Simulated scan of single mutants.
Amino acid sequence: MKVLVLAIDRDDDFGKKAGVKGPVIGKGKCIDAALKLSLADPEDSDANVVYAAVKLYDELKKSGEFEDVEVALITGHPDVGIKSDLELARQLEEVLGKFPAEGLIPVTDGAEDEQVFPILSSRLPIVSSRRVVVKQNETIETTYYVIYRYLKEILSDPEAARVFFGIPGLIFLLYGVGKLLSVSYPQSMDIISNVVAGVILLFIGGYAFTKGFRIQVFRALVNEFVQVIFGVSGLLIIIAGMINAYVNIDAYAQQLLGEVPPPGLIKLILYVHSINTTIIIGIAVILAGRIVQAYLRKTSHIWYSVAGILILPAFWIIVDITGRYALSIINFHSLATILEISAAVVDVIFSVIASTFIRRYFIHWASGGEIETGAGDQELRVAQETT
Rank of each mutant, 00 (worst) to 15 (best):
V69H: 02
Y145I: 13
K135E: 15
A336C: 04
V5R: 09
I317N: 08
E372C: 06
V71N: 06
A208F: 12
S233D: 09
E87I: 06
I329G: 06
V348M: 13
V134M: 00
Y145V: 11
A383S: 10
E70F: 00
L86K: 09
S128G: 12
I371C: 01
F218V: 15
Y144E: 13
V107A: 04
A220T: 15
M242H: 01
L268P: 04
I358D: 02
E94N: 07
A47N: 01
L120D: 00
G376C: 08
D12E: 10
T139R: 12
N248E: 10
K179R: 11
A7G: 03
V20W: 06
R10K: 10
I140F: 11
T299V: 14
L236E: 13
A197S: 03
Q378K: 15
I338Y: 06
S129V: 03
V260Q: 02
Y145K: 09
I269E: 04
F230A: 12
I147R: 09
G28V: 13
E114R: 15
V352C: 12
L201D: 13
S355R: 07
I280N: 02
L180D: 09
L120T: 01
V348S: 04
G376L: 10
T356E: 11
R381I: 12
I105C: 05
Y57R: 03
E114V: 04
D347F: 13
R162D: 11
I171L: 13
T322M: 14
V382Y: 11
T299A: 14
L92W: 08
I338C: 06
T142N: 15
H273T: 08
R381T: 10
A245K: 00
A197H: 14
I338S: 07
A314M: 00
L236Y: 14
L73K: 03
F172Y: 09
M189I: 15
I191D: 12
V49G: 07
D41M: 06
N276W: 07
A161G: 06
G205A: 11
F164M: 04
V222W: 12
E93D: 10
G97T: 00
L151Q: 08
W365T: 05
E153Y: 07
I353L: 13
A366R: 02
Y150N: 13
Q254T: 14
R90T: 09
L236R: 10
Y325Q: 10
I171N: 06
D113C: 01
I25M: 02
S156D: 14
M189H: 11
I321Y: 05
S342N: 10
A307H: 04
I243K: 05
G368H: 01
S233T: 15
V199S: 01
R149I: 03
D250W: 01
L173N: 00
F117L: 07
V217C: 12
V196Y: 03
A354G: 08
F164K: 05
E70C: 07
I31Y: 01
A375S: 14
F117R: 08
H77M: 07
